[in-house]
Amino acid sequence: MRDIEHPIWCEPTRCSVGSDRVQLKGMHRSVVLTTQYDRHSGNEARVHLWSYDGIYVYMQLEFPGSLHDGLELTLEQGEEFGTALLDLSKLGGRRR
């Protein structure tokens, strides 16, 4: 059996790669980052990275307790989404 190579962001306590000792199946997972996006309701958003092979990496964005399933984004899509949120936040904070 070959050694398992984990991405630098892979959190050992959340990783399931190699849990099947016959084959190197499973999923690399990062830590979960949580942010409260509505302090009045306490609603949170959670995001983490995941990958089956360590090459194609995705972001999973979840909204626990909401009616939405969440979003699965490539790293590029996540970066674009984050930039758009920052741009809108800056625009919304401007005064005429």
Rank of each mutant, 00 (worst) to 15 (best):
L33P: 01
H48A: 12
G82M: 02
L61F: 03
T35S: 14
F63P: 01
R39A: 13
Q60G: 10
C15F: 06
R96E: 13
L86E: 13
F81A: 08
R14L: 12
Y52N: 09
M27Y: 14
S19Q: 13
L73F: 06
E11T: 12
R39W: 13
E11N: 13
M27R: 13
D87E: 09
F81W: 12
E11L: 09
G70H: 00
C15A: 05
M27Q: 14
E62H: 01
H68W: 08
V47F: 08
P64F: 05
M1N: 12
R21G: 10
H68E: 11
H48S: 11
L91Y: 09
E79I: 13
R29K: 14
S51D: 00
L88F: 15
D69G: 15
G92I: 00
H6Y: 07
R96T: 14
R95W: 10
P12I: 04
K25F: 11
C15G: 03
E72I: 14
T13Y: 06
S89Q: 03
S89K: 00
E80Y: 01
D20V: 10
M27A: 08
L71Q: 04
L61D: 03
G82W: 10
R14Y: 07
Q36T: 15
S51Y: 02
V22R: 14
A84W: 11
G70N: 04
T83A: 15
R2C: 04
D20C: 05
L24Q: 13
E44V: 15
D87L: 08
L71S: 00
S66V: 01
F63N: 04
I4D: 04
M27G: 03
F81R: 03
T13L: 09
L73Q: 00
G82H: 05
G92H: 00
Y52E: 11
E76H: 01
G26V: 02
V47H: 03
E80V: 05
W9Q: 07
S30F: 08
C15P: 03
C15L: 08
E44G: 01
N43A: 15
N43H: 11
E44S: 07
D87T: 11
T83V: 14
V17S: 01
Q77T: 10
G54C: 02
Y52P: 06
G42A: 04
T13P: 00
T74P: 02
D38R: 08
D3Y: 06
Y52V: 03
Y37H: 05
L86C: 12
E5G: 00
G93S: 12
G70Q: 01
L88Q: 15
Y52T: 11
Q36V: 15
F63H: 02
E76W: 01
K25Y: 07
L67S: 13
H48V: 12
S41L: 10
T74N: 05
L71P: 02
